[in-house]
Amino acid sequence: MHIPDGFLTLVLCAVMYAITILFLIIAFWRTNRILSEKQIPLMATLTAMFFTAQMMNYPIIGGTTAHLLGGPILAITLGPYAGLISMTIILLIQALFFGDGGVLTFGANVFNMGVVGTFIPFLVLFAFLKVKPNRNSLLIGGFLGAFLGDLGAAVAAGLELGLSYPTFPYGVSIALTAMVIHHSIIGIIEGVATLVILLTLHKARPDLLSLKRVAPIITGDLPPLMEGK
């Protein structure tokens, strides 16, 4: 999912940078307004924790491995804009410190995993909780949101790669198909992982599921969870 430098055309890199920076400006503006300085160390520890979680690989059948992206759970606990900032930091450290991803493709990577990968899970869960704010909606919405978020990020990456033809040697149809097939498996894993993490949080510290979230103005915060049947 991390697109390295050299895969995308310069024009596309610039366009993706512009779109991502637009989202980041809104994200910083909203985060500065909603979160106080008290939440800064908290956001940092959670970001560091998901950085670590990304390094723990799940074995999938066939000898390949997949790892958690973390976008969905960040979006659910901190809100999509704060999740976007966290993902941006994770991707920056990965690119500049571990050489995972690139600097020219940074805008595209942040867009795929930070914007698409956090907003889709948030919106899906929002819809589920709007209909019925109980535990089951939280779990199903969390699973489906994480799955669709991962798939959405893969579609975005596939389109970017395909549109970079001939810099990237395959066109949209091949790039998109490959990314979607691969990530529908990874998406299920992301979904199950998100579900189990939500379950753990719900059981041990349900208050962590009702932190202050940096949510879009249009939707507002997630509907609060109703306990009991």
């Binding site: 959670l46 979680a53 723990m56």
Partner: peptide
């Protein structure tokens, strides 16, 4: 995943 959940709680408390 449940380890990550535990880690999450620890990270929160540490924060």
């Amino acid at each position: 995943s449940s380890m990550i959940g535990t880690l999450f709680i620890r990270a929160f408390e540490r924060g």
